[in-house]
Design a protein around this nucleic acid. Sequence first.
RNA 1: GGCUCGAUAGCUCAGUUGGUAGAGCAGCGGAUUGAAAAUUCGCGUGUCGCUGGUUCGAUCCCGGCUCGAGCCA
Length: 288
Amino acid sequence: MNHNLPLPCYICGPTASGKSALALEVAQRLDGEIVNADAFQLYRGLEIVSAAPSLEERGQVPHHLYGVLDPAESADAGSYLRLAQPVIGEIQSRGKTPVITGGSGLYLKFLTHGPAPLPTGDAALRAALDARPLADLVAQLQALDPLEAARTALQNRRFVARALEICLLTGGLASGLRDQWAAQTRELSASLRGYVIQRARDDLHARIAARTRAMLDGGALEEVAALVRVSPNCEKAIGLREIRALLAGDIDRATCEGLINAATRQYAKRQESWFRREQWLEPVHPAL
RNA sequence: GGCUCGAUAGCUCAGUUGGUAGAGCAGCGGAUUGAAAAUUCGCGUGUCGCUGGUUCGAUCCCGGCUCGAGCCA
């Protein structure tokens, strides 16, 4: 590691906690540039629904990796890492501080702790695995890699299929590869710096409700209506399904708003769980 | 005004032939290294509308009251 390069600064927190605004402040103070770490703000044409920074905000400080993917493309933590690393390196090489901000915990984790030596997901294999009963997958994983099976939440189809996928793709043991990564990543947190925004639940929920309303009033319907081809990956953005149902006349506006709020609150809760474990993050409690 | 039905968790409701009650959703907590705004695990949070009566014991049975829905006037 080159110690002359500015160390990145991470700004984390649940959705609607005010990450973009804080990142802007930090970037201005540190002479930095902002790098997106949000799985959905990567997509073009999803700016409103994904609550990406406004053009006005982007004008104040250079922003990177916003709207760089077509909605028809799919992404994953690995492809994000390959996208982000050169951008971050380039910012550092110019003597600027990368201010990395976003709510996608797994993507951030790839950045901070590196990828495990595991194969990329294989769409065809996944389709084949998805077609089989969970009990089958569990039995096969237990046969191929009993240690991995013991460590896996066997009710979670995703996790079982992924573990099995690794074994089948590598012809080896998923558990062994994961151990390798765990060993090399143990001391990394010490050299990281970053902040996590923490807000009282009531406050966060109020901010979520206000933001949802502003989205629906501010062009989200038109944005969703304009989406043509959307990858299964991008399809999962909160708000897409709900706004489509509204556009189709299946639900009314109040119902749509309520559904989006609930989904967003649940997402925010999962994010808080994730970031709570990242003990290297320093909590920040913004004044209202 | 009369009759009927309903009133149980934050919401929608189930249930107890009388022994203080349980589902879904919401909520809360957890897991989580290539789908992650995904996926998944755990947790019931309650003056059973109010008030008398019967009973060893009432959320349940009976009377009255209040509120809501419907029907008849």
